[in-house]
């Protein structure tokens, strides 16, 4: 350890990893994956793992990935809710692992929901 920069680097790196223990909800983005039996059967687990990989790859310290139960629309599983601070939640349906990087890049990083994946588009 020779400088503040080295210390800062460790700090930033570790903060990303323990950020989910923070109590301040106003700054975190929450990705919630439906993981009831229906979700898991439809392939929600690889989707969730993809979200975790993608957020780690991009070093998104303010994102938590968590799971929830069944909300009743089992035919649309795997479903993923994304909560950006201060915004309405956006629900993605029939999510596949290959869709994840686009959702993270366009929605979570740039704030533009991927309309064609959302429940609104699916139910038209």
């Amino acid at each position: 350890m020779k400088s503040l920069a080295e210390l800062q680097a460790i700090r930033e790196k570790t903060l990303n990893r323990i950020n989910l223990r923070k109590e301040d909800e106003n700054e975190t983005v929450r990705i919630v994956v439906g993981m009831a039996t229906c979700g898991i059967a439809a392939g929600a687990r690889p989707v969730m793992l993809s979200f975790m990989e993608e957020t780690e790859k991009r070093g998104l310290g303010n994102v938590t990935v968590s799971q929830t139960g069944c909300i009743g629309m089992c035919r649309l599983e795997p479903m993923v809710d994304v909560y950006l601070p201060g915004q309405e939640k956006v629900t993605y349906v029939h999510v596949k692992p290959e869709m994840v990087s686009r959702i993270v890049a366009e929605h979570i990083v740039n704030g533009r929901p991927v309309e064609e994946y959302t429940i609104g588009a699916a139910e038209k």
């Binding site: 990893r17 323990i18 989910l20 223990r21 969730m48 975790m52 957020t55 938590t64 990935v65 968590s66």
Partner: peptide, 10 residues
């Protein structure tokens, strides 16, 4: 230390 989606603090 990797990123995990949940931490269980005991």
């Amino acid at each position: 230390m990797e990123i995990y989606r949940a931490h269980v603090l005991c």
